[in-house]
Design a binder for these strands. Sequence first.
DNA 1: CTGTTAGCGCGTTCAA
DNA 2: TTGAACGCGCTAACAG
Lengths: 356, 356
Amino acid sequence: MMKEKQYTIKDIANMAGVSTGTVDRVLHNRGEVSETSKKKVQEVLEEIHYRPNMFAIGLAGKKKYLICCLIPKYQPNDYWYFVAQGIQQAAEELNAFNVKTEYIYYNHSSVESYCNAGKVLLTRKPDAVLIAPNFRKETLQITQVLNEQQIPFTFIDVNIEDTGAMMYIGQDSFQSGYIAGKILMNDYTRDKEIVLFISEYDQNSFEVQMQRRLEGFMKYLSDKCDHLIIHEVKLKGENYNEDKQALARFFKEHPQVKMGISFNSRIYQVGKFLEENKIRFSGLIGYDLLPQNVELLEKGIVTLLIGQRPGLQGYCATKVLADKIVFKRDISPMKYMPIDLIIKENIKYYVESYNL
Amino acid sequence: MMKEKQYTIKDIANMAGVSTGTVDRVLHNRGEVSETSKKKVQEVLEEIHYRPNMFAIGLAGKKKYLICCLIPKYQPNDYWYFVAQGIQQAAEELNAFNVKTEYIYYNHSSVESYCNAGKVLLTRKPDAVLIAPNFRKETLQITQVLNEQQIPFTFIDVNIEDTGAMMYIGQDSFQSGYIAGKILMNDYTRDKEIVLFISEYDQNSFEVQMQRRLEGFMKYLSDKCDHLIIHEVKLKGENYNEDKQALARFFKEHPQVKMGISFNSRIYQVGKFLEENKIRFSGLIGYDLLPQNVELLEKGIVTLLIGQRPGLQGYCATKVLADKIVFKRDISPMKYMPIDLIIKENIKYYVESYNL
DNA sequence: CTGTTAGCGCGTTCAA
DNA sequence: TTGAACGCGCTAACAG
């Protein structure tokens, strides 16, 4: 707890018997310095624990920092919109420290779009990068370049391993699926039937995430529930009318099914259908606090939403990057978000504090 | 998306036709400024979105700020310990802005101790104050002085109304009790019995908070559950042996009871007893992530913990105060924490990110 | 009451 | 190769 003296370059200059200019030159190995001066300064530096004053650096160097965020293109109020909100809030706080953020969007179902975004990213010469990674192979191409150029980066939402990322921020998908299973099967009695609303997408990383949730869910079922009948309805999630037909077909055939789950954030599609057709589920679980989902939760049509704090993810990831590049602070490389269990009765407080 | 010009006090001075000194004076309402100058500057400030350069503030400011925190004395890992952790984290971040924090502890069951702490507080001449208020009347005495001296303060955990507090941060106790009711009564069938583990304390504010939780809980029961048999066991929470006897007595008489709840953070006492006596509850609910509670949750003895993010409360309260005194930023006067529902399967991620 | 000014620690230019 | 000097934006002391 003793307060170490804060040495300045002036102190160092005095101690080494040179001028501040020279000290600066050896600190940044810039310009020509004689071997003798260099040695003198380095000796002093080894003795003391010099910690440059970051404020002075920020003030003097008109240095601007750029953080680039590679994320899926979003619509108002969808999942990535909230992530962007969190990034935005961090950006505002960081504004004062000459940190600018820039978004590069990609279409989350197009490899090509992702690659292009990656190329654009590199042309921007960012000081740090936040990536919502989508395709493994293509991501590795990007991160390789970033590593070569010593540009720190973090992953958000989905993790890609062995890339040298500074940090991953997101949720444990398997476990969240497991929990969903436990809660949906709370009233489990031997002869219940359930239906999974599965999305049909290409093989991208987000799909992998949903796959993990599904695996966690099935794990719970196989651990704890025997003789369960599990139905599946595939939804495209793009054309509601088409999906409506699929749902109608299903419920005509299986009117007795009263429990269901979706592993993506579009449970509202199912909810909407159920509402329109006055079908009452005893358990309907979905992900994420999209306004449509929230509304259905409040109406009692959806019974549980699993939240993963997209805003906080964006906020933390951005702050962590800034800490790294502006203040040279390091942090732990992994941060799992809480798996928030949200019901009708506590939704209000989650929506209110969404931008934490 | 247009890059706003970064205005400096020099710009403002020019625009307002005064000097930088005057601008500084109105920004920090320091020193004497004529009404006319003040008005001119304020007009400019309203037009532009002035964001001071934090680097410059950090570099130039020799001013030290002091935030005093009046909170209950704590033991490692109890509720207030986590609050203090959050404060500490904020303190570290604020360190760079010359903000120091200081704790003043009181014994949460002693009015006298609370008053003394209040007196000490005022002698410290703080720039801002964080209070975990306990006794209403005594709190009013403290806040009156603070108001006179124009020292901003926030309440945490428990709110005391009509005091001119900048902000209250805490949980909606009634609603959290209501939710507890809903979840405990999830398997509700007409003839179930439940037991409430009630604490016996003096009439302090924390007791009031538990009272509200109880009220919320009873509200749910009276709304949704008829013909319920509700037992009560009073626990002192200080001498385990004594409480053990009370519990033993109760369970000897009512071995059929399998659901219970405690409205304070000491459900671990009950859990410990149940574990020792191999009594298995189908539902046991408590508050807060104390390590003992977490352990029992993981073992499956406690089935649900309600979390209220003590760390975040401390963190936010401290940051908000600093925002006020250092950066003159104001914020909304009320912040409800989410009511986190924590079960065996998601506890891990809450413990890990406790210091958010 | 108000304007001026000297730093804060560092980066950078410009003479020497 | 080096030192001196200026400026980044803001605070606070000081002189008027």
